[in-house]
Computed example of a mutant assay.
Amino acid sequence: MNQPPVPPHEPGTELGVSPWHVITQDDIDLFARATHDHDPMHVDPDWCARKGPFPTTIAFGFLSLGLTTHLSHEAGIWPPDAYALNYGFDRVRFVAPVPVGARVRGRFTFLGATPRVDGTVLTRTGVVIEIEGEERPAVSGEWLGLMFPPEAQRRLVA
């Protein structure tokens, strides 16, 4: 079998940076409804002002992490002729809270790729979800993707 192509980057190469994305209370509330997690630190601004560890609601860490795919598409990091599936994360850290109204963006760095015998490529991408005006990021981690070059995509539907 032919070896699948490996993305043409050296480890450490920055792949792209997304535009800024505002985190709204609507985003947070929709995430709370979808995950059945109605923690007042995230969904109740009055509670936060009176009792919370932060003066306002903050985004769920998993909401910030969940924006990774959207932000990666906005950053244009994926080859146009390949399809990638989320394979998981390594070393994810929720570094700093994201207050409602903050703007976040994704910064993506190529960390490596391993061709697999089935024609796919296991990619490793560094992800940092930055918070505008903050020194510390919201999230950092290593994102694993299973890239399907065009010839491997055809096998998916066969």
Rank of each mutant, 00 (worst) to 15 (best):
N2D: 10
P4V: 15
P5Q: 12
V6A: 14
V6K: 13
H9W: 15
P11F: 04
G12E: 08
G12M: 10
T13C: 06
G16F: 04
V17H: 05
V22Q: 05
Q25R: 01
D26N: 06
I28P: 01
L30D: 06
L30F: 01
R33Y: 08
D39E: 03
D44A: 07
W47V: 01
R50Q: 14
K51N: 09
G52E: 07
P53H: 10
F54C: 04
P55Q: 14
A59M: 04
F60G: 03
F62C: 01
F62K: 03
L67G: 00
T69Q: 07
T69V: 07
L71W: 09
L71D: 01
H73T: 04
A75E: 03
I77C: 09
Y83I: 08
A84R: 09
N86A: 03
V92L: 12
R93Q: 11
R93I: 03
V98R: 15
G101K: 14
A102P: 00
R103V: 00
V104P: 10
G106E: 10
R107F: 07
L111C: 10
P115I: 13
R116Y: 06
D118T: 05
G119N: 09
V121M: 11
R124D: 02
G126Y: 12
G126P: 01
V128P: 01
I129K: 12
E130F: 02
G133R: 06
E135M: 09
E135R: 14
R136S: 07
W143H: 10
W143D: 02
L144V: 02
L144R: 05
M147W: 15
L156I: 15
V157A: 13
